[in-house]
Structures are given as C-alpha cells and as structure tokens.
Design a protein around this nucleic acid. Structure first.
Lengths: 156, 156
DNA sequence: CTTAAATAGGACCAATATAGTTCTGTTTAA
DNA sequence: TTAAACAGAACTATATTGGTCCTATTTAAG
C-alpha cells in the first residue's frame, strides 16, 4: 500500500526524540512514557535498530539506548532498511530478482528500478537532524536537488 | 512495507502494454493471454482503472478497454491513486489527519508530509509513455529535476 | 553475593490487508 | 435471441503485520 510499516514509523519517532538529547541514555520505559507508546513495541523497534547499528545499547541496570552516530548521519532510508523486512523497492520484481517468469522481456522492471533509485535517493538525503526541527519549505527543493549529486541547480 | 500493491503493479503492466497500441480495443481475455495473468484479476484492475477514468470501456460483444488519454498524460502516480485503497502518503499520519492523538505537537508529521510531496512529484512525472520504452539513464536526472518545477538546473 | 533493572532473542497469537475468485446483472454486436 | 463482453459487489483464503510474552543474559547497586 505504499506505506512504511508502523514499526518504521515508530522508529523515526523514537530516534527523532533521542536525537534531541544526544548524550542521554534512554531506557525503553523512559521512551514509552514520553512518546505514549507501548513498551514492548518500542523495545522491539530498538532491538532491530540495534542490530542494524543505528543505536547502541547498554545492558544491565541503568542501561538503555543511544544513537550510534550523530543525527545528521542517520537517514530515513537507513531506518527503513533496518525496520522493513523486505529489501527496498516499490514493486516486488524491481526489488528482488527472479520473482517473475517474464522478467527477461519485461520493459517495466528496469523503469521501476530507476524510479526506486530516485525515491531512495530522496529518502537517503533526509537525516534525523532534519526530522528534529521542522524542515523549512525551501528544503524540499534542497532534498530534490541533493538527490542528484552531479548537477548544479540555481534558484530561478 | 513501502510497496505498491500487486494490483497496482499489474495495472502498470496492463496499461503499458495498451499504450503500445493506442487505437486498439483490448478485451480482458486478450490481455490475460498476452501478459500471462489471470483474467479475473486483470478484469478487477481494469474496472478500477475505468472508475478513475484512466481507461475507457466499451460494453457488449466485441467490447474492451482502451487508454482514456495519450500515454504521456497518464502518470504512475495516477495509477497508484486509482489502484491503492488508501490516500497517498508514506505514513498513515502524514496521509490522513486525525489518526494520532499527539498530532498537535508532533514534529515528525510535517516532515513526513514534505517527504510525501517530493516522492509524489517524482511519481507524477513518470508517464506511461516513459514506461513503454526503457528510460535512458539520463532521465533519472530529468525526473528529479522535473520534480522541482521552479528551478533551473544545469549539467555540471 | 544477591537482587532488581535493563536489554536480547525468539516464538507466538490476533488483527488486518491483500489477492484472487465467483456470482449476478447489464450492454451490445451478430 | 444468443453469446461475448464489461460492471459491481461480495466472499474466502492467504499473507503480512502488529503486538505480546517468555526466557536468557548482563550489570549496577545494596
């Protein structure tokens, strides 16, 4: 349905909140309370984020989670990769090879893959740092422009 | 899961095939045979596309479907709108208002909406005409640039 | 050294969404 | 009048997802 899963949605919420206090260690209980979400669910999300090295964890009493790197170096695309089960791609056939028997002479597939590339670039260029503060309107333009690194774009 | 539904996938396949023979009328049986898909499924897709005025239909014997307008004027975004149940948006809260109680002071929502806008613009700029022939590599750049109409971009 | 607070991993169930099918009705060419 | 074709809607089965829970491990603090 062209939606990110709820876990991914929660992930961005949790990480964005954590990005506001970079040095603090957050326990699941802390985050659950602040964000009004169920602890087990947040826990699940953070475990997955940990496996993908977007957060670091400290086990044991007084343990918790913290961002693994500066907010500017964590992109929405990386969060999606960590929390979605399937590989990135708007259609199954364009994300994974060998799912369709007519793959050989299918003209659509290659075009979907190009679309994927562009969309992914957009998502790759939005960082947690961008999500913390409201992005100014102008930066939509910036997002698009950055999706295309080898070009120079000038305001009209 | 950040995937378009299978029906949408079929839709692009069917419409792209039809775009290759603009004046022909295609029956469901025709398309099913050529594209190796089940007739009932194709039928379902075409009915939905008809309701959204992407195809016209002729009922009765020797009837069938044809594109409602030139392939260059039908975008991937329009196909998605016709075939996906939910409104466009990468997260629920950014697609529909009032799904979340903390909507008021949620900083993420607005940012997701901006991301939606950019992604949608990309999808809006890919037409069926683009899908018929393999898009040249260069046009990825073009896609991105077009997503941002009020700017001039020049090759580096 | 014991306890309690935390994370890690994995299994499991319930709810939802999707895919695909089928049925009934309507239109129209031959 | 019949057969080919679309229209709409309901239904079922499957797959995915969301959410919960259980057990194990780690570690600070008393």
């Amino acid at each position: 349905m062209l939606r990110v899963s709820k876990l991914t949605d929660y992930g961005t919420l949790v990480l964005t909140h954590m990005a506001g206090f970079p040095e603090r260690l957050f326990s699941v209980a802390d985050l659950a309370q602040v964000l009004h979400l169920n602890a087990p669910t947040i826990s699940k999300v953070l475990k997955a984020l940990g496996r993908h090295e977007l957060v670091t964890s400290v086990r044991g009493a007084r343990g918790g989670y913290a961002l693994a790197r500066p907010a500017g170096e964590i992109s929405v695309a990386q969060i999606i990769d960590a929390l979605e089960d399937q590989p990135f791609g708007l259609t199954e056939c364009s994300a994974t090879a060998g799912t369709c028997d007519i793959e050989g002479d299918c003209r659509i597939r290659a075009n979907w893959q190009r679309i994927n590339t562009v969309v992914r670039r957009v998502l790759d260029d939005v960082s947690l740092a961008d999500m913390v503060q409201p992005m100014p309107l102008a930066s939509e333009a910036t997002m698009v422009r950055r999706a295309l690194p080898n070009r120079k774009c000038s305001p009209q």
